[in-house]
């Protein structure tokens, strides 16, 4: 299947993460493969690696390129950093790992990194993804489709959690990615193993809403049978429809999967498949300035840019 609006650009290396930035061409060295990449402001980049390090990079206003900034090399995690997230607009960075550690990292005065450990389960629990909900709250996800909600104002562990043992049989059940919409902070949407995409409304705690996948509900459709690597709210639809929708409604979500699918899901609607590639789509990003543009990284050492027709208001 070839899509005339999809352009693929072969690279000579594996692409682990992609993010839209202002038009700048820059290259920053990394000690190992990147597990998570964020750009909280147009002037900064934060990324974590498989070797367990965390790096900041800032835009040099003089020559317009990104320069390596402070780095946390050791003792942040035992093993690799699974996922990071930075407060939008540039603030604290939260990092999680399969070692069960949750850390907050920030760049203080004089460009010095300061970090503190929020929790350490000593490996009894592992976290595979994290996402800020507000300046003080964040959600983590991990094994068994479990989700946890943390509030820095109430230290000592997660303040509420979604029981994860609703997954089927002996198929893997891991959360790979979480997203929280700024207008609906009480809903976490998560994607993981077995093509599963579900939402967790903090107000109805123990019942996940399955959007796709082989969950408990027999009626939910399944777009994919493999791992969903990333989910992001799709802001392609105009903002008026977002504000007018009831607060219980799950807004459209874009996902990419191991079996090469890039699609948009909406509650109670047929999913829209944007791409069906012969290899995995590892990650994607929607251009915040122009949401009809989507960039994605494909397993076979290439990136692709998809241009969607502009949405008409409805």
């Amino acid at each position: 299947m070839s899509n005339p609006n999809f352009h693929q650009f072969p690279q000579s290396k594996s692409i682990d993460s992609v993010r839209f930035l202002s038009p700048i061409s820059s290259s920053i060295p990394s000690p190992s493969r990147i597990t998570s990449l964020k750009s909280p402001t147009p002037k900064s980049i934060v990324f974590s690696t498989l070797s367990g390090t965390l790096h900041f990079a800032f835009l040099d206003p003089v020559d317009g390129s990104f320069d390596s900034g402070p780095t946390v090399e050791t003792s942040l995690h035992r093993g690799s950093v699974s996922s990071i997230d930075v407060v939008e607009g540039g603030g604290e960075c939260v990092s999680v790992g399969m070692d069960g550690r949750v850390n907050l990292v920030g760049v203080g005065e004089g460009g010095r990194v300061e970090w503190k450990r929020v929790a350490d389960s000593n490996g009894l629990v592992g976290y595979s993804s994290v996402r800020w909900g507000s300046n003080v709250e964040f959600a983590t996800g991990g094994l068994g489709f479990g989700l946890q909600w943390w509030d820095q104002r109430r230290p000592g562990g997660a303040v509420s959690q979604l029981k994860g043992n609703w997954a089927r049989g002996n198929m893997p059940s891991m959360v790979h990615s979480i997203d929280i919409h700024p207008s609906r902070k009480h809903i976490c949407v998560a994607g993981g193993s077995g093509g599963t995409i579900f939402a967790w409304d903090l107000r109805w705690q123990q019942q996940p809403i399955i959007l796709s996948g082989a969950g408990v509900s027999g009626t939910s459709q399944s777009l994919s049978e493999s791992d969903v690597w990333e989910v992001q709210y799709d802001n392609h639809t105009l903002s008026s429809s977002v504000t007018s929708a009831p607060s219980t409604k799950i807004l459209p979500v874009m996902m990419c999967s191991e079996d090469g699918i890039l699609a948009v899901l909406e509650q109670d609607a047929e999913p829209i498949e944007l791409l069906g590639e012969p290899c995995a789509i590892n990650t994607f990003d929607i251009d915040p300035q122009n949401p009809s543009e989507v960039i994605c990284a494909l397993e076979w050492e290439s990136i692709g840019i998809l241009t969607r027709p502009r949405m008409v208001a409805y």
């Binding site: 093993g79 399969m98 000593n122």
Partner: peptide, 19 residues
Amino acid sequence: YNWKHGKKGFGVYWLQQAQ
């Protein structure tokens, strides 16, 4: 592997999956 490397939960998870 994960059990031995301190990721107890993850180790148990895989062994449980493998029954």
